[in-house]
Design a protein around this nucleic acid. Structure first.
Lengths: 148, 148
DNA sequence: ATATTTGTTGACCATTTTAGTCAACAAAAA
DNA sequence: TTTTTGTTGACTAAAATGGTCAACAAATAT
């Protein structure tokens, strides 16, 4: 039940972009370095995000990638779906019609509930939320560091 | 983020045992056939459940496996943990101490929330619940079938 | 122009995980 | 002592994961 690195790296990249929102494009190279992601791998990861219209990319000297939407409009569940595919714990949750017995299968119902519980968290989280949380964390850390 | 077959098969096997609770041991062969699980695979799957004291096994002519606890006392989250390991979507949720940056990492916090949401479902579900749901489903199905 | 800096694409690959299989064995009961 | 079951450990095929690499394309700077 682990999330793939695709989803983890991808959300981190989008968080970087969200923190940089409104300040022009960010270099893939820089994201890769700051988030410890192999650059050639990151190049592949962002592709579905470009396709989905969440980010755009530009080549050349002042290129890089940047958010197309406001962080407020980028929902975590959507991003995970793009990078990871469905988070349903079992395939029959997504298309019960393929699994003839799922209508009398009680474990099926439980996995539906688990997925809904995950969705409630992921659908209620935007990248604006993550940005706000991040800034709070940094403030707290500064306070802690000054105490020493 | 898919559950492994271990967890799926294992919970199905335990559901079979729960439905049979109080009526003596069930043959692995029968569980394997009813739930479409390869017998030699099932033999391996049940081992952690025996070790954990949830079921016991007996060899020989009137052997098989049977529940040691009442279905009411067997919690789904515990079973999943035994068969699948932690359901935490990322490893740093389980031991943040190994990941130095998790205290300032906001994605970490989200994964914690996702895990908690899953746990709320899995920890509140016992195999008695599953048995009751199963019997309700069967009743409904009978009613539906009579309508035809 | 052309050199440099970026992103794009597709093919490739090593490692790990998953989902089993198989054979030899052990114990209980008929 | 034969039959019926579960036990154990070694083994394996296939798929998924997590990348890498090379050739290319487009923007910008000179």
């Amino acid at each position: 039940m682990k999330l793939s690195t695709r989803a983890r790296y991808g959300t981190k990249a989008l968080l970087e972009l969200s923190l940089h929102w409104g300040k022009g494009p960010v270099l893939l190279k820089d994201i890769a370095q700051r988030q410890q992601i192999p650059l050639p791998y990151l190049e592949h990861l962002i592709r579905p995000l470009v396709k989905a219209g969440i980010i755009k990319s530009a080549r050349g000297t002042r290129g890089g990638i940047s958010l197309l939407k406001s962080p407020k409009e980028v929902i975590l569940s959507e991003v995970i779906q793009l990078l990871e595919g469905s988070i349903a714990p079992v395939a029959c949750v997504d298309n019960p019609e393929l699994y003839p017995r799922s209508d009398i299968c009680v474990t099926h119902d439980i996995w539906v509930e688990v997925k809904k519980a995950m969705d409630r968290v992921l659908e209620s989280t935007t990248f604006e939320d993550l940005v706000l949380r991040q800034k709070q964390k940094w403030n707290l850390k500064q306070l802690r560091d000054r105490q020493k």
